[in-house]
Write a protein that binds this DNA or RNA. Structure first.
Lengths: 225, 225
DNA sequence: AAATAGCAGATTGGATCCAAAAAGTCGCGG
DNA sequence: CCGCGACTTTTTGGATCCAATCTGCTATTT
């Protein structure tokens, strides 16, 4: 039998960090003071630093030698690059996935789409984000391309903070449901171009909303000191 | 002028690790005993572990909790995935780069192609690999897409070990020189499809050679379990 | 004799401690 | 009044030390 679990501290810290970045506890641009954060998590600096190295590799935080770690800020240019790369890579993922999709797979994906719907009904942003992510990645994972999936994971992670605002935008949930249904139909028909097309419009809607937010909101990142 | 430099130990270790993996001092599949490697580098385990976390993020080594770090092995399937992703992403890089290329850029790239040639004449494999990499990445960098460049860097890193054998294959250096010239011509003409085409055949030649090596050589990798 | 429990060694994970570098502060001189 | 420079403080980087876990072997039991 396999072990129940052995959650190493680094992974606990890593999850905690991701959550804090995602929820804005650690806002973009802010420096991460290792000592204070470590004590806040109730751990030492060693596992924290290794976790931060992981996030740095994903581009979530920036490291300046002898200066420290800072939560990455994404400007619009950067954001557009991420979305362009997603466009290219997600198209490939869908292209590779569709021939592998069994009927059972599609049923599972449809079930996840329903979960997105019920999460949307509940209004819990985090639940929506999680279910939405699962929905899309169930498709990507059928591509059987682990490296591609990992890169996509990183790209999604990088924009998680900004994407969550999209879910709270007016009317976005109906649009999302509609587009998810479109993707599902294309999957059932094994229609690669149509699936990619739906995914593209789906992504574009999110980007437009986010770009609008970034452009107008112009968050005034205060340095608390 | 900026500071001379302040090379932090982690980066020294990281470079050392990359070199050792590239040159086969640390062969694929082998476990990395932290204590012994750290003492061999003359450092403590702390910076070594942070460096390994970086390499793990790049897929160069694998981490199993409470078991250790192991140098990653790439089978042919994995290798094909890397090359497929390179095909997609390098096409995008070239597409984005060409409109940005100044004449000075192209001259610099041509100079680097010459360096590949002279390195080839000298027969130094490492020098060839380095110059070749610089040549291609000078083009990619003109894309002005930092995230794309970083992903491409990781993909190149992942296959560095295997690609170096290609340089020593019979006749490959002439082919490389020919294809580099082709790429340069396409760049001068600002011909995107042609540049991508050359890059594709260039990459395919390397992949065929590497796949052949992997297939026949059938290295007797001991099963670590 | 085979299987399993448990003991000993090795190896990783985490915490504390010390050194080095950067940022901020105060004071002196122009 | 302002700029420059040494000193202090804060924070990061690295090393050492201790605890938790895994591996391999041995002995005991059936």
């Amino acid at each position: 039998m396999t072990h129940v679990k052995a959650p190493t501290t680094q992974e606990v810290v890593l999850r905690h960090l991701r959550a804090d970045i995602l929820t804005g506890v650690l806002p973009p641009g802010q420096q991460i003071i290792q000592e204070s954060l470590a004590s806040r998590y109730g751990v030492s600096r060693a596992p924290l630093r290794e976790a931060m190295r992981v996030l740095e590799g994903e581009g979530q935080i920036i490291h300046l030698p002898h200066r420290g770690y800072f939560v990455a800020e994404l400007d619009l240019v950067n954001m557009r690059e991420v979305y362009r790369l997603r466009e290219i890579l997600e198209s490939e993922a869908i292209r590779a996935a569709i021939p592998n999709l069994t009927d059972a797979d599609i049923q599972a994906i449809a079930a996840m789409a329903d979960e997105v719907g019920s999460a949307a009904a509940s209004g819990e942003l985090l639940a929506i984000a999680l279910a939405n992510r699962r929905f899309h990645f169930m498709i990507f994972e059928a591509s059987q391309m682990p490296r591609l999936i990992r890169i996509l994971t990183q790209l999604w992670d990088a924009t998680d903070v900004y994407r969550s605002v999209y879910f709270s935008a007016h009317g976005s949930l109906q649009i999302i449901a509609h587009e998810h249904a479109g993707i599902l139909d294309a999957l059932r028909a094994r229609d690669v171009p149509q699936a990619i097309g739906w995914q593209d419009t789906h992504r574009d809607h999110a980007l437009i909303s986010i770009a609008h937010q970034l452009d107008t909101l112009r968050r005034p990142v205060v340095t608390d000191r």
